[in-house]
Design a protein around this nucleic acid. Structure first.
Length: 164
DNA sequence: GAGTTTGAAACT
DNA sequence: CAGTTTCAAACTC
């Protein structure tokens, strides 16, 4: 599995863990280990945390103590099943495009992948009555009133050292 | 906190 | 490919 995740989002002086919907955008940028990452929390009951429904797995992470999942297989005791799913995930992500099929949310709620990632809906989308007018550049996200900028880890580390 | 709504992911 | 079901998160009350 190729290393392909950048998990650092820079917002003023705070750092946040990206959500599942932001992931597809993130995977195209720089890519390294998460920095000061908040433990992801899932509540999976039926998927055994072995499907993309699981937020932790969707990021290639193990479930942790913060999770309240049931019958979790996203741990180091099920390496074969886990790696199999992750390989499929990488294949999908390598050609991933941000597109939604929203019917009722007008692409104005976080149900919409595009909206949640702060990306304007495109012609790839099949959404109904789209009102998603978010117009941020690549690597930028807006959630509520807060804007987020995705930056390379190296840049992040530079900024961090400058702040001291 | 419980129940409902939503749409991606999975399945057929 | 399209339609349906399953699922967990987003949302509402």
């Amino acid at each position: 599995m190729k290393p392909n995740h950048c998990d650092t989002i820079f917002k003023d002086d705070q750092f946040q863990t990206p959500t599942r919907q932001q992931k597809r955008v993130i995977t195209e940028t720089t890519i390294k280990k998460p920095f000061q990452q908040k433990q992801r929390q899932c509540t999976c009951k039926k998927s055994q945390c072995l499907k993309m429904y699981c937020d932790c797995l969707a990021f290639g992470e193990y479930c942790g103590s913060e999770c309240s999942c049931q019958n979790c297989h996203n741990d180091d005791k099920h390496p074969e099943q886990r790696s199999k799913v992750l390989e499929q995930m990488v294949e999908k992500n390598s050609s991933a495009q941000l597109k939604c099929n929203c019917r009722k949310s007008n692409c104005q709620k976080k149900y919409c992948e595009c909206y949640n990632a702060g990306v304007k809906c495109s012609e790839l989308c099949k959404c109904d009555d789209c009102k998603n007018s978010v117009k941020l550049g690549y690597n930028q996200f807006q959630i509520g009133n807060q804007k987020f900028i995705l930056i390379p880890v190296q840049t992040f580390e530079q900024l961090k050292s400058q702040q001291k």
